[in-house]
Deep mutational scan, measured.
Amino acid sequence: MGFKLLSKLLVYLTASIMAIASPLAFSVDSSGEYPTVSEIPVGEVRLYQIADGVWSHIATQSFDGAVYPSNGLIVRDGDELLLIDTAWGAKNTAALLAEIEKQIGLPVTRAVSTHFHDDRVGGVDVLRAAGVATYASPSTRRLAEVEGNEIPTHSLEGLSSSGDAVRFGPVELFYPGAAHSTDNLIVYVPSASVLYGGCAIYELSRTSAGNVADADLAEWPTSIERIQQHYPEAQFVIPGHGLPGGLDLLKHTTNVVKAHTNRSVVE
């Protein structure tokens, strides 16, 4: 069995187990497998329904001669939608809004960016022009300005110390501490036991640490421990890039980060 097929099978099995364990909360999309990078042309966006009122959005972007996937989250909030992270750029984010209108038909009224990198804030200006209120932590807003990236308009308070959590509509926002970046936030959907790890969490097929220019490698494993301790009931975990899975993604990420750190020390 090929690795790609095995990865998709694991996603399907995880979703099936969740649907059985929580039949009222989960209505997993039966329309197909989780979209992969090879299936999404740059400039297009796919939506994948995880649970009743919960979707991931998947886009792709060219970077350094390669094409990478990027995940975000959409959560229903009454007759409105909360968006977590842009679709990595203005063109993708405009396509995301169009796809949401086509498939869901509810307005996106608020959006949260989970850290300051372009795959999370690139497209904020498109959201703002569409009347979406954009939010991020003060740290993310400051770092985005320093980096020359787009800056969300509103500040999220109460997320300055490791372990801080605040309720934001249908989700809980959690600051686990520094990891992929010093400002990275985690998003949890309690009604569906869905954990969105953003770039602080890796997919299972990833074996290298990737972009760690703004990471705190020493603190990252401790931050992941905080996530595990705060959300032990999480059933569906979405990484910032690639295929979702279960809580095993947290341990896998820790292993990859520690291996990278150990290699760096040896070198």
Rank of each mutant, 00 (worst) to 15 (best):
G198T: 04
T207I: 08
L127E: 01
T14N: 05
P41E: 12
G65I: 15
F116H: 15
G240L: 03
P107K: 15
S181I: 00
V257L: 06
T182M: 06
L83I: 15
V108W: 02
E267D: 15
D214Q: 14
E80G: 14
L143R: 13
V257Q: 03
V121I: 06
L243F: 13
H117T: 00
P138N: 07
L247Q: 06
S205P: 11
L243P: 05
A218V: 10
L9R: 07
N262D: 13
N71R: 01
L96M: 14
H180D: 00
G122I: 06
N184D: 03
T36W: 07
T140N: 03
N92Y: 04
A133M: 15
D248C: 05
Y12V: 10
V28D: 07
I227K: 03
V257E: 02
I201L: 15
N262S: 09
G32P: 14
S70H: 05
L82Y: 14
L156V: 13
A95H: 15
P190S: 05
N255A: 14
L10I: 06
S30R: 09
A87E: 00
P176L: 02
Q235C: 05
P176D: 02
V189K: 00
G197M: 01
L73I: 07
D79I: 09
P244R: 04
I100S: 07
D77N: 05
R110V: 12
A94S: 12
R206P: 04
A51Y: 15
V194L: 09
S205Q: 14
Y135T: 01
G43S: 10
G131M: 13
D29Y: 12
Y135A: 03
P41C: 11
V194D: 01
D214F: 10
D119V: 02
S161Y: 08
S22D: 06
M1P: 03
A165G: 09
N211P: 05
R167S: 06
V194W: 00
S191H: 10
V112M: 10
P244K: 05
T14E: 14
H154I: 07
K91N: 12
L97Q: 04
I50T: 13
I227N: 04
G246V: 05
E33H: 13
S160L: 11
E80C: 13
P232S: 09
V212E: 12
H180I: 00
T253S: 13
I224K: 01
T254G: 13
K8I: 05
A179G: 10
Q228P: 04
N211S: 10
S139R: 08
F236K: 08
A87I: 00
G43Y: 15
V108N: 00
Q229P: 03
S181M: 01
A90F: 14
G177F: 01
F26D: 14
E267Y: 05
T182A: 08
Q103G: 13
F26W: 07
G169V: 03
S155G: 13
I151R: 10
S223F: 03
A111H: 07
L24A: 09
E219P: 04
L249P: 01
R142P: 02
L82F: 12
I151G: 08
I224C: 01
R206G: 08
E33G: 09
Q103H: 15
R76G: 10
A218L: 15
G105I: 07
A144F: 02
T114V: 00
V54T: 11
G105N: 15
D64A: 08
K8Q: 06
P170W: 04
V42D: 15
S205A: 08
D29I: 10
V257Y: 00
D164Q: 09
A25I: 10
L10M: 09
I58F: 14
A200R: 02
P69S: 14
P221R: 12
E99T: 06
V146F: 15
S191C: 02
H241E: 00
E203V: 03
S62D: 14
L24I: 12
Y202C: 04
S31W: 12
D85R: 00
G163N: 07
L250W: 01
T261R: 09
P232Y: 05
I40H: 07
S137N: 15
S27D: 11
S31V: 15
T222L: 14
E267S: 14
S139P: 12
P69E: 11
P69F: 15
A215T: 06
L143Y: 10
P41N: 07
A209P: 12
G2S: 12
A144T: 12
M1G: 04
G131D: 06
S161A: 12
A213G: 10
L217T: 07
A215F: 04
L143T: 10
S27K: 07
E172T: 14
R263I: 08
K251E: 08
H180L: 01
A66I: 14
A209W: 10
F63I: 12
Q61V: 13
G53A: 09
R76Q: 07
Y231I: 15
V126Q: 14
F174S: 04
V11P: 12
G197K: 02
G148S: 13
V67M: 11
V266Q: 12
Q229A: 15
F174M: 13
W55F: 13
L143F: 12
P69M: 07
P107I: 09
G123M: 03
K91F: 13
K4R: 05
H115N: 02
V126A: 07
P23M: 13
D216W: 10
G123A: 03
Y196G: 02
V265K: 09
H230A: 13
P170H: 14
A59L: 04
V67W: 13
A213M: 13
H241N: 00
G53P: 06
T222S: 12
T134G: 02
G65P: 08
V42E: 12
M18A: 06
H115E: 00
Y48V: 09
A234H: 00
T36D: 14
T254F: 14
A200V: 08
S264L: 10
A234K: 03
Q229V: 10
L73C: 02
P221T: 14
F3A: 06
N71E: 01
S56L: 12
R167I: 13
I151V: 15
E157V: 15
E33F: 15
V146G: 10
Y68D: 04
S30A: 10
I238A: 01
Q229E: 13
L243R: 07
T36Y: 12
D77C: 05
S181P: 02
Q61H: 06
G210I: 04
V42C: 08
T14Y: 15
L81T: 07
G177W: 01
L81A: 15
V67Q: 09
L250A: 03
D64F: 14
I17A: 06
G123I: 03
T253P: 01
V265A: 11
A165C: 08
L204F: 05
A130R: 14
V187N: 03
L217K: 07
G158E: 13
L185D: 01
H57V: 03
L195R: 00
D64P: 14
G43D: 13
L204R: 09
V166N: 08
L195P: 03
T86V: 06
D248K: 10
D164M: 06
S7K: 08
A215P: 04
H57I: 02
G105E: 15
T114G: 01
A178M: 12
I238R: 01
G89C: 01
S160A: 14
L143Q: 11
L97A: 01
Y202V: 08
I227G: 02
G210F: 03
A130C: 07
Q61P: 02
G198K: 00
L173V: 14
L204I: 12
T14P: 12
V37I: 07
S193E: 08
L159S: 02
V187R: 01
P176R: 01
V265H: 13
D125R: 09
L204Q: 05
L143I: 11
Y12T: 14
L143D: 03
S208L: 08
S205C: 04
S16T: 10
